[in-house]
Amino acid sequence: MTTLLIADLHLHPSAPEVTEGFLAYLANRASQADALYILGDLFEAWIGDDILDSPELDPLATRVAEALKTLSDGGTRLFLMHGNRDFLLGKRFADACGATLLPDPYRIELGGKPVLLMHGDSLCTRDDAYMAFRAQARDPQWQAQVLAMPLEARVELAKRLREQSGEANSNKAEDIMDVTPEEVDKALIEHDVATLIHGHTHRPGVHVLEVNGQPARRLVLGDWQPQRGWEIRIEAERPPQLLEFALSNS
């Protein structure tokens, strides 16, 4: 049994190399796996599942959905989690991909061990401005108001939000945008696990921890770039492996 986990692809028309690399990844590496988990920010922005009705506005959405459906039809179980960029992904898109939408956080057994999966943004509690936006963006009433807007207006809204996010992050201290250690410990204890896997921070690594006197670990997925991607691979009873690979070899 082989399980793959990825996150933070941020697919967008302005980064065609990442899109092509991801599609090759699905056709090759992922198609050989039993399951693929995408832990948020598959897209740089997602303005609602009804974008699938208007491929002229975003042909990338339809192309990716079709590639994911080919993967799931081939026997690879597919799971999606919301990120801070694509929090409006819904059941219709998941169904079009043959995927299951997961809550965040999500506790599962992988490689014979309980593991907690998260996107990771909820752990960054020192970033007060972002946490306030996150609360708003996850509010069902706010989401309903946004989804009621015409598609063209939502396209412009997504553009403005990306610009505002980039400007805000450029003025923040690096440690503010990383996880809060106490929140990591809290999540591990609350869900009774010794392994946490997440993305979001774009700081790939394996962190060895001690929680309540017991060994634990936090594995962080990297963000995809035109030259390389990141995955966590779990096989049988082996510990999770964090791997960087060239997209040209995916």
Rank of each mutant, 00 (worst) to 15 (best):
I189V: 15
I197Q: 12
W142E: 01
E237I: 05
E190F: 08
P240C: 13
S72M: 11
E244V: 04
D128L: 14
T70P: 01
V184A: 09
K69M: 13
L57K: 14
T2I: 13
V155W: 01
L11A: 08
I38G: 02
S54N: 09
G112C: 04
V211Q: 11
E174W: 10
T180Q: 15
A236G: 02
R107M: 06
L219V: 13
V206K: 11
Q241F: 02
W230G: 12
L116P: 10
K69S: 11
Y37G: 09
P55L: 09
N249T: 13
T76E: 07
R77I: 02
K159Q: 14
I197N: 14
L23T: 12
L78I: 11
S14W: 00
V18E: 07
A24K: 14
L102A: 06
T19R: 12
D73E: 15
A7T: 07
G222H: 12
L36C: 00
Q136E: 12
D86C: 06
P140C: 12
E231H: 15
K91M: 03
G48D: 04
D128Q: 09
P55D: 11
S170V: 01
P140H: 02
H198Q: 14
P16Y: 08
A168W: 01
A158M: 02
R228M: 06
I47V: 15
P204G: 04
Q141M: 05
Q136S: 08
H10Q: 08
V179K: 04
Q214T: 10
N249S: 15
L221E: 07
W224I: 05
G166Q: 15
F43A: 02
D95T: 09
L157E: 02
P105M: 07
G75W: 11
T125V: 10
S14L: 05
D50L: 09
L147C: 04
R228N: 05
Q241C: 07
T19G: 05
D128H: 10
P226E: 06
A129T: 13
N84F: 06
P215C: 15
I232Y: 09
E56V: 00
E190P: 00
F93G: 05
A67H: 06
N249F: 03
L221S: 09
L57T: 03
L71I: 04
L26Y: 08
L42N: 13
V208W: 03
D185E: 15
D185M: 08
V115C: 14
V206M: 14
A246I: 02
T19M: 03
Y130H: 04
L151N: 03
D53M: 02
M131P: 04
E44R: 02
P114S: 10
E66Q: 15
